[in-house]
Design a protein around this nucleic acid. Structure first.
Length: 419
RNA sequence: GUGGGUGUAGUUCAACGGUAGAGCACCGGAUUGUGGUUCCGGGCGUUGUGGGUUCAAAUCCCAUCAUCCACCCCA
């Protein structure tokens, strides 16, 4: 056992695994490009106030999960627990609303939450996400959902379901909260202690409770959808209509409640059906008041975020491909000092021509070098010995077929390129 | 933050309170100019860490750290 280990809830992405990450990141970028979203990169830490004012003082994230610290001048920062607030901060700060072609943004990177680690839940985790800022049009809601759907589908995932809901605007919510309080109050004693708290602070979360008794009571609770005002209802209907038009299957789940305070109207989750307790693959929704809360102009927006860890877990579960592991194209086997030096020159040339090349600096015997060539998974071995060198030749051996032929050294790069 | 399970070689796992072992991987050789297969050889690892009980602890007890599962929360 080594003396040091990674901090709790974090992990190393090892060389054998990194290609999986590269693969899903590559696909995400491709899909973002298909939809014409452009990348935005924001710092890993921000003034903690940014999260407190947007995500919400009473949310779990702010209340107990933030990595908060003071710098040497006493400024209070937090490692970002999520990506939306920083993007909106940057959007306001840089006046992106005034520029064309800069309202559709995507981001990638680590987020931090001090949470108890579990399968699919880490303290440093990697999110991908998009934000579409500036429009209240339900076309945009549908497009954002479509992008997530397209991404998951492109990766080959099948075991997931899209659930959507509308949590209304401020007006609807207050009415609904009152209705919930009225409904649950008579059964107060039967609720779990968490739920008694929730009833005061955020009654909607009660719908999400997993305690059996609470679940049973919540079964008959009034539905959010009945409390939506005209606008919100119309909007939600349009979102559904557009999704249907794009042939994106969804189910309406009135019990979806997002844990971040800035959400309004459209809320959605892509749930993995065989992942365990941490099964939200992608979560997102509309946040029409967020920009104002951060001191900007009234600027509506909608976006989503997903975690790469769960994505990869889910893909492994479904035995999906992550593409090929990185292997060198050519492995140079050099015999003798002169051949080794001549080989150096050759290696440089091949690498410059874009041919990935490997060799072993320590092994001298043919046998050992061939073994290494095989182990790296190289496609070809180039064998250079005294005899070949004398005649300006080199042996090109196809390691999968086992065939080999003698080639003039000046022609070798062309021969490999032609393969 | 709460509850439960687990921690032994690089890895997957064995070992009744009494000498810590096997598969895979890895290294070397058979084969000093040709790999994958095969055969032979190679393991002292503070049994996660720190205490305690005992003649004796990987094994029992306590603490701690990590991990897994669930609550919670969410990506």
């Amino acid at each position: 056992m080594s003396t040091y280990q990674v901090p709790r809830g974090t992990f190393d992405i090892l060389p054998d695994e990194s290609y999986k990450w590269q693969f899903v990141i590559k696909v995400f970028r491709e899909i973002a490009r298909e939809f014409n979203y452009k990348e935005i990169v924001t710092p890993i830490f921000e003034k903690s106030e940014i999260f407190e004012r947007s995500v919400g003082e009473s949310s779990d994230i702010v209340e107990k999960e933030m990595y908060k610290f003071e710098d040497k001048k006493g400024r209070v920062f937090a490692l970002r627990p999520e990506g939306t607030a920083p993007v909106v901060r940057s959007f306001i700060e840089n006046g992106l609303s005034l520029k064309t072609n800069s309202s559709k943004l995507y981001y990638l990177g680590p987020m931090f939450r001090y949470d108890r680690p579990q399968k699919g839940r880490y303290r440093q985790f990697y999110q991908y996400g998009i934000e579409n800022i500036g429009s209240t049009n339900p076309f945009v809601d549908a497009e954002v959902i479509a992008l997530a759907y397209r991404f998951l589908t492109k990766l080959g995932l099948k075991n997931f379901a899209l659930q959507i809901n509308s949590i209304g605007c401020k007006n609807c919510t207050t009415d609904y909260d009152d209705a919930l309080k009225e409904y649950f109050n008579p059964s107060l004693v039967e609720l779990c202690s968490d739920c008694r708290n929730r009833l005061l602070k955020n009654p909607k979360r009660l719908l999400d409770c997993k305690v059996k008794s609470c679940k049973a009571i919540a079964q008959e609770a009034p539905s959010m959808l009945d409390y939506l005002d005209e606008d919100c209802t119309a909007n939600f209907d349009k979102v559904k209509e557009y999704l249907t038009a794009m042939e994106i299957p969804f189910i309406v789940n009135p019990k979806i409640v997002r844990g971040l305070d800035y959400y309004s109207q459209t809320a959605f989750e892509f749930i993995d059906t065989n992942l365990g307790a941490q099964n939200t693959l992608v979560g997102g929704g509309r946040y029409d008041t967020l920009a104002e809360q951060l001191g900007g102009k009234n600027m509506p927006g909608i976006g989503f975020a997903g975690g790469f860890e769960r994505l990869i877990l889910s893909m492994e579960e479904e035995k999906l491909s992550f593409g090929l592991q990185q292997v060198p194209k050519v492995y140079l086997v050099a015999l003798g000092t002169e051949a080794r030096i001549a080989g150096l020159k050759l290696i440089m040339e091949m690498r410059r021509m874009g041919i990935s090349t490997e060799y072993d600096p320590d092994k001298t015997s043919m046998n050992a070098q061939m073994k290494m060539a095989n182990r790296t998974g190289a496609e070809f071995a180039l064998i250079l010995g005294e005899d070949e060198l004398k005649n300006n030749n080199i042996i090109l051996k196809d390691l999968t077929k086992g065939e080999q032929k003698i080639i003039k050294i000046p022609d070798i790069i062309k021969s490999i390129k032609d393969k």
